[in-house]
Design a protein around this nucleic acid. Sequence first.
DNA 1: TTGTACGCGTTATCAC
DNA 2: GTGATAACGCGTACAA
Lengths: 339, 339
Amino acid sequence: MKAVVKPVSEVPATIYDVAERANVSPATVSRVLRGTQPVAPATEERVRKAVAALRFRPSRLGVALAERKHAANGIVFPDLSGPFYTEVVLGYEEMAAQRGRSVLILSTRDRADAAQAVLSLADRVDGMVLFGRTVSDDVVQEVAATGVPVVLLGRPEVPGTDVINTENERSACQLTRHLLDHGHRRVVYLGDPTASADAAGRWAGVSKALKEARRRRFIATCGADESAGRATAKELLRSRTRPDALVCFNDEVALGAMLAAEELGLRPGADVAITGWDDVMAARFARPALTTVRQPMRELGAQAAAALDERITGARAGLIHRVLPTEVLIRDSCGGHRT
Amino acid sequence: MKAVVKPVSEVPATIYDVAERANVSPATVSRVLRGTQPVAPATEERVRKAVAALRFRPSRLGVALAERKHAANGIVFPDLSGPFYTEVVLGYEEMAAQRGRSVLILSTRDRADAAQAVLSLADRVDGMVLFGRTVSDDVVQEVAATGVPVVLLGRPEVPGTDVINTENERSACQLTRHLLDHGHRRVVYLGDPTASADAAGRWAGVSKALKEARRRRFIATCGADESAGRATAKELLRSRTRPDALVCFNDEVALGAMLAAEELGLRPGADVAITGWDDVMAARFARPALTTVRQPMRELGAQAAAALDERITGARAGLIHRVLPTEVLIRDSCGGHRT
DNA sequence: TTGTACGCGTTATCAC
DNA sequence: GTGATAACGCGTACAA
């Protein structure tokens, strides 16, 4: 009778099995595998053969406990819809992987126990990135207090954390000036400055430009998604004092606003200027194409991962506070440049 | 002199510290915390107080080693651009979180060491989801052989794995029939059937409908992104035998094709029908709006997580092979229903 | 109901 | 250059 192929799920070999087979101590096996101390060539040879024969792979569990490190980073975001968070996560993962660290994700959307989840994530990683709109500063502090390095993205500083943001005020101001220069008179900002630091920064920029031009500063509190934008814009555009320019918190809101305009028989770009933020794919394909602001999303993620690494390895002691530049993209939705 | 607030990053307490303070054994502390065995109310009270006083939180490292479980799932995707992978990941994370498991992500894009990375991910998780277009079947087999449950998404079955797909052929066939019914004669599929099971399935559906109608079956091998779609479509639409319908592998390709048509002075929807797949946001906002096929993305992710859980906990022994339904969304890009 | 003692798989510190 | 051996922090049979 022919020998049956061994069921593949044998018990995985341990470092002891390897040691025994190679006639050395577990310590020596470890030394060979990690290259942490010189080992005699002949011994090394024996060890390597045993490792291969037994298909030995060090248990991450054991390694982690011994090193007291997870070799993993976390990232906490409110959602993943739209390219913004997605691209940041991608940049983050790529950089983390380059440095040999895994990435744990956590979405807080629709989650009552977000704080708990973040705290629990904190003890599975060596460091984590936290976006705005996820958990309160208390929780951030608590995490930082456990000794887990934290990098904040798109939110104001919390003591003991690194912060990386993208530029908001300046671009928003520039965008608004452009609108004013091209003859728009009644500019309204659609967003909620109390909801996030980004929303506040953008409003500050809009506000500044309007002030300079001695225009009234209008703001319509608005959620951050398409349906909120559509509803808010509809109301505004139906009012007697119809705005001729809508500066929206992001592209979703702006695209919703475009829909609202069309539904009211108004032509975006001609009858009402509309601008967004993020340069999502749909912004390019909408007609008219959406004027928006592009952020260096990948770069944001990559820098966050790098900053985390520096703190985890102890390469850096002080805290970072960085602001990445953004770029205004003028397209057709803000009017035909009717100077 | 007033006592200074203790520096927050003290050495975290261990279960032994708690035991000592509560005058019990570490075992009892464990019992209280895990609720695994009854403990006298008075004892429990003492333990809980000690836990609170010391701010004790069990080390995941210790727990994991003792339980020999990671309490974590992995998910491997080729990329995260576009809403497809993103939404699947989100559905996956949500379901995993509900079941108390963390999620590790791994992107294989632009990665020479993808196989290595996947193997290494395999020993940080209790199970993982693998998308098509990530690693070869060999690697999948290798992972499965280590005893880590694997669920495959959007790729053909590999022995020993669960598989969940979304329906391709039927919807593609339906879509193509619609085009034929509405007078389109020269239908070309833009995609690469050798690149993924999804691409192959969609081509099969298109092919079938064309065959039924005794039409010639045209296919133009094409990458899966916007620029590939644009280039391929441009070439096709410039040829003497210009197609009057382009069935594209996904929305990115289709949107690229729309761009190409416009650049050549052709009106998508009127001069040439164009269809996509995935129903990305831009599909709704393009003009004309893009006819496409919607997949239950969240559901796909959620089911994958559930399937994994069943295998990890041993609730299920056999393997699953499931196909989720998709929905054709007829919009303006495939012509004005000029029956 | 509670405690003892060992196992989990490595790494690292000493001796030799 | 190599081998014992002690952490690492927890879970859990087994015993009491």
